[in-house]
Design a protein around this nucleic acid. Structure first.
Length: 200
DNA sequence: ACCCCGATCTCCT
DNA sequence: GGAGATCGGGGTT
């Protein structure tokens, strides 16, 4: 079981490179530990799909800060999604955690998501992943690289085979394959970019 | 004040 | 496996 925390220096890289680093890494919070199996890279002003595309706001502020912090945002009026901030202070970038396998604390994970009908389903999706780890906006901005932090990120086995494809639910920049995943039953099923397609 | 955005659950086929 | 319903917040006007 990997117990080495990833460092801020290791994470201060382009989110596309950080994605490969994060696949296979472990995230631990409130009694549950997961292995990341699917992520998406987001940049800043040059990435129209990014929360930071139009500059800094109170919500995306954490993405502009130093690497190694957790960026949590609210979605659909009832869910949360978690990202690992990358790059350096002043340069926005993050990796969205889309899916993970529960490696310990499975009983707690099931208690947080009673609707799950299999272990693979526990963290199969960005909001589900947050749910099993107990992540919400109160953890926005916590340091993932500190042993004292409520949420910690550990180095994992380097991924051997990494798949890539377009990001989920993103109607722009369909040509950039910045969704990355490794083979796992917990990888979310790919849905083509939103069915609503305005003329953008 | 308004518009746009999106993940999951629950049926149903 | 697929389709429809569900909701609140952020950003811009």
């Amino acid at each position: 079981m990997s117990s080495r925390l990833l460092t801020r220096e290791e994470l201060a890289i382009d989110p596309v490179d950080a994605s490969r680093l994060l696949l296979g890494s472990h995230l631990e919070a409130s009694g549950v530990r997961v292995r990341i199996v699917e992520v998406e890279a987001y940049r800043g002003g040059d990435d129209p799909a990014s929360h930071c595309y139009r500059g800094k706001t109170p919500r995306n502020e954490v993405m502009f800060g130093p690497a190694g912090f957790l960026y949590v945002y609210f979605v659909y009026g009832m869910h949360f999604c978690a990202n690992v901030v990358t790059l350096t202070d002043g340069v926005p970038g993050a990796v969205l955690l889309r899916a993970a396998e529960v490696v310990s604390g499975e009983d707690i994970a099931f208690s947080r998501r009673p609707a799950s009908r299999s272990a693979a389903e526990l963290g199969k999706g960005p909001a589900r992943l947050c749910k099993v780890l107990g992540l919400d906006r109160s953890q926005n901005g916590v340091d993932l690289t500190s042993a004292d932090s409520p949420v910690r990120l550990y180095a994992g086995e380097p991924a051997t085979t990494v798949h890539a494809g377009p990001r989920v639910g993103v109607a722009v920049a369909m040509d950039v394959p910045w969704r990355f995943w490794i083979d796992s039953p917990a990888v979310s099923t790919y849905k083509r970019g939103g069915k609503r397609r305005s003329s953008a």
